[in-house]
Design a protein around this nucleic acid. Structure first.
Lengths: 203, 203
DNA sequence: ATACTTACTGACCTGTCAGTCAGTAAGTTG
DNA sequence: CAACTTACTGACTGACAGGTCAGTAAGTAT
């Protein structure tokens, strides 16, 4: 009976496994109420190992946010940008789909964490702003600019704040986070916003 | 030298004083990181006294939210409703002002607390929904309805979701909470939204 | 004054949890 | 197989903070 090993040594995979477990734990309990013991148990690992890869709970938290962010946002933005549709088709298609997805995605969880813990982690907020918000806003602005150059949008379209596209998405996100089971037709919300914006933008 | 008293007994005022101090402390640190000792010190009171008026930290938290909510919302909604302006004037005037104020008001702080602590206090979330959100949405719906009956808005206006009015306000709130010092022209944001909505609503 | 009630204090108790580290065993090298 | 490296474990510690309560003194009644 070759006593099966108590654990495997997997130096490579541990950090990500621990970070994933931490993400789930933070998502459920929030930062303060999440125990490192829980994270470790979830990752199928001892508490001590967590501290081998992440010096402190705060480090782990930052790693989690960065991790989720880079893994998701790049993909999302990339496939939204590479398209040859007309501006209106693009807005009604890929962009709308993107906006619908975000409130249910892990990004929403990260936002919640940033809202509650942000003030005590200003560098994280900066990181998030530069890697998500700024890039997203920029993408929208470049898209509008392209529409204007193509003659699909009128020149005044340039004055529209990109945040106007995201406002209903934001509301939907918060709504879902807080009033989980209260109904809200978020699709219609974003649909209408897009209709209104197109009415303003189109040449 | 009539040794001045160490404290005064003020049974009536203590609860509110403590709740106010708690609100400030929660606002600064969040629920978990706020210490009852801090709250007590801020209220100029001993830790023990806090526990005379509020059985637990959680009780205190709930009292704080309810307290802030009832004290603010009634006033806000009331003076928005009692007006004899035309629908458009009303939207461009009092409603816009209201929307501009909220993100800087204590309501924003309460929202932050609800976002982070909501999941563990479902009754608080219900309370907040019924006393703030539902009433606000309802007010908007009744307002639109009135506009339609007066012939100022077209009948399809009834299909507009009231949340569309609030979306940019929501975004402004979150923006301020997270990216405190990053600029965002929130006034213009809401102004444009109102313009777009009126374009859709007007007969 | 004196006796009495109770708002209020603050030292203490206790459970919890981030962080440590001596020890163990998985895997590797010769 | 033995000697060695190091990924990994889990019992332990120290600090912190929620909650308690015996004692104190402010105010009141007689």
């Amino acid at each position: 009976m070759a006593a099966e090993p108590k654990y495997q040594r997997r130096k490579e995979d541990r950090p990500r496994e621990i970070a994933d477990a931490a993400f789930e734990t933070f998502a459920e309990k929030g930062y303060a109420a999440a125990r490192i013991d829980d994270v470790a148990k979830r990752a199928g690992v001892s508490k001590g190992l967590t501290y081998l890869y992440y010096k402190t709970k705060e480090d782990l938290f930052k790693a989690v946010v960065r991790n989720v962010v880079v893994r998701r946002v790049d993909a999302l933005l990339d496939d939204v940008e590479s398209t040859e549709l007309s501006s209106e088709e693009f807005i009604r298609g890929p962009l709308l789909t993107f906006m619908r997805r975000v409130p249910r995605s892990p990004i929403a969880i990260v936002i919640r964490l940033l809202i509650s813990e942000g003030p005590r982690h200003p560098d994280l907020v900066d990181y998030y702003y530069e890697n998500v918000v700024a890039r997203g806003l920029d993408a929208i602005e470049r898209f509008v600019e392209r529409g204007v150059r193509r003659g699909e949008f009128k020149p005044e379209a340039r004055d529209i704040q990109p945040q106007l596209f995201l406002a209903p998405m934001m509301l939907s996100m918060i709504w879902r986070l807080v009033f989980t089971e209260r109904p809200l037709d978020t699709d219609r919300l974003m649909q209408t916003q897009v209709d209104m914006l197109l009415a303003q933008l189109k040449a």
